[in-house]
Nucleic acid binder design. Structure first.
Lengths: 369, 369
DNA sequence: TTGAAAGCGCTACCAG
DNA sequence: CTGGTAGCGCTTTCAA
């Protein structure tokens, strides 16, 4: 039904080869026929069949993006960054959502490979213990870049943030505003979780050396329980422990938002009674009931960078081995940690060199509409 | 490099045809050879090349999704609904983001067709005046379904909401809580805009017959100005007009959020001085500084339904002509319209039959993480 | 400068 | 029941 190369060739009384070359500006075709071809193509509204081309040349000009959860606006923004970059280079994006399920992710990757994508960007749901998926990809020499979630054992370019720094940044901030008992709601089942916990511990150690295990609670979900309720419960648990924390660093914004909810529900004030910081700088986090202090990770930039690197990787045909990229972090200070002026007593020991904190320009005022 | 059908055929000393049939369970192949094939396939880890298959059978088992703005969480959720449905049916999703640009959308569609997608789901950025893109699709007999943004002149299945009802629902709510001067911040450049305005007008007419044109301001952007600032300015303008509105129905949540910001910035209280309702029930809208009353549109359900219909359309090979689907609306009442108890004086005339309002269960408590 | 022809990997028709 | 074989639409090499 659709018009083929042959159709325009026949109509012009020339060969398909000639048309093909004319179209890609091969210089061994006369300008005259080239013009005729171009005109005819326009006239018939010829569109090359990319399946056929892909089969023929062995490259599809398509890449796959595997995301653990598109509902999370963090990943939606990443996806946006990826699409922008990819579309600007005339590639097509194949999207798969693993819903945080490692097995679903495997199948999704399998399917994308069967479609002969030229490469993959993966924000993975695999556990750190099972790297077989990535090993398989390497064995097959499929170019791929790891996004957001890092697997140190895997030698593939990574684009994301340094979670240790993130955890430290957030925790130091809480300490700096005078919190004495800083808790952490973690999510160790996600690849970025342990690093943030570690950053939290580092900051505490550097400050006064003590980390109270009772002030760390994890939200790894047992079964189908939603993250929101897990977070809510985690906060309730923290708030009933003694000493009661006066500052909480949460693994991410959704958790932080639920933590705040939990605190308010039991009659505590945020930030006066307990300060909260999240991570991700989700849209509208400055318009929340209590505007949320959070660590911005520039997800769109992350996505764009990952795509850019993947495309380089593909076009360089393996001659390139790009370094990991760490997107700069940015602590955005808002109400949830804005303590009534109160000098921090006993600032013990020299605090370790802190990463520079860029001006916390709100993101929700930007393009998020 | 990757293993082909031929490789397994050779290894088994049979023909590719036999292998092909064995794999798809054609009954004219002996169980014995079928087993041998299956085993060999597993052993060699054979993966069919879907480009080749697509070329051969003329169907790609892939569909395209065209979205105007993935950053907007409304569309991210739609995309999520689509992916779920599509993946469950073993289709692949090709994603394109038009960034609200009609021309970019055309090109994106062109590219998807060149990749021989079996159909398209389009939340379009085309203006109502230029339907050529859709006409072209119909001419080429490409199955497609219109999502969220409706083009009445186009005979293609539509999945979305009834904007007139939405506008009426929101406006009636404001009237019901006692607002005397209900304003509307519209966005007429988007296909869903006019319907909502109309619903607003209908509600006012039914109530007391008067609609003040000064209380309607549009946010169609001049140039590169962001929606957020357009919305903010629109609200400022409204607030300085006399009579000052005491209730505002906003085209969508991002606009509503900025409108609230504008009101608070000039020292007004929400909802006491001015009540605000949005549309979309964006994540966390119940955790905003002022939790936002909004009309929920169940975007994930919308996406899933659209995909489902498209797949039916494809598999029925045009024998089917599905009806438009209107996803039920759901007014979610929160702080931004929770007026201090105040009886509505002078409830003139019988208010028109109102759509049932389902229980306003918050969405942010759900899976949005 | 042009064209014939051989694939790319898979499917499907039709003859054995 | 099985296996040649002729495409699907495009690219590319090689000969004219």
């Amino acid at each position: 039904m659709p018009v083929r190369l042959r159709d325009v060739a026949n109509r012009l009384g020339i060969s398909t080869a000639a048309v093909c070359k004319a179209l890609k500006g091969h210089k061994d075709i006369s300008e005259a026929t080239r013009q005729r071809v171009l005109e005819c193509v326009r006239e018939l509204n010829y569109q090359p069949n990319l399946l056929a081309r892909g089969l023929s040349v062995g490259r599809s000009k398509a890449i796959g993006l595997v995301i653990p959860e598109l509902m999370h606006s963090f990943f939606a923004e990443i996806a946006h960054g990826v699409t922008r970059q990819v579309q600007s280079k005339q590639y097509t994006l194949l999207l798969a959502d693993s819903e945080e399920n490692p097995e679903a992710e495997r199948q999704a990757v399998e399917l994308l490979l069967a479609r002969r994508v030229d490469g993959l960007v993966i924000a993975s749901a695999q556990s750190q213990n099972d790297l077989s998926l990535f090993e398989e990809l390497q064995r097959r020499e499929v170019p791929f870049v790891l996004l957001d979630r890092r697997y140190p054992a895997i030698k593939a370019p990574f684009v994301g943030i340094d979670n240790l720094t993130l955890g430290r940044l957030a925790t130091e901030h809480l300490l700096k505003i005078g919190c004495r008992h800083v808790a952490h709601i973690s999510c160790l089942s996600i690849a970025t979780g342990p690093g943030r916990l570690e950053g939290y511990l580092h900051a505490l150690e550097a400050h006064d050396g003590k980390a109270n295990p009772r002030l760390i609670v994890d939200t790894t979900r047992a079964g189908t329980e939603s993250v929101d309720v897990a977070a809510y419960q985690a906060m309730r648990q923290l708030l009933s422990s003694r000493p009661r924390p006066d500052g909480v660093f949460c693994f991410n914004d959704p958790i932080a938002v639920n933590a705040i909810k939990a605190a308010l529900d039991v009659g505590l004030r945020v930030p006066q009674d307990v300060a909260v910081v999240g991570a991700g700088n989700v849209h509208y986090s400055d318009l929340l009931r209590v505007p949320l202090t959070t660590v911005d990770q520039s997800p769109a930039a992350m996505g764009a960078k990952a795509a850019e690197i993947l495309l380089q990787l593909i076009e360089s045909e393996g001659s390139l081995r790009p370094a990991d990229i760490f997107i700069p972090l940015n602590l955005v200070e808002r109400e949830s940690t804005r303590r009534p002026r109160r000098i921090c007593e006993r600032e013990k020991g020299g605090s370790p060199a802190r990463r520079s904190v860029r001006s916390g320009l709100s993101k929700a005022g930007g393009s998020g509409t």
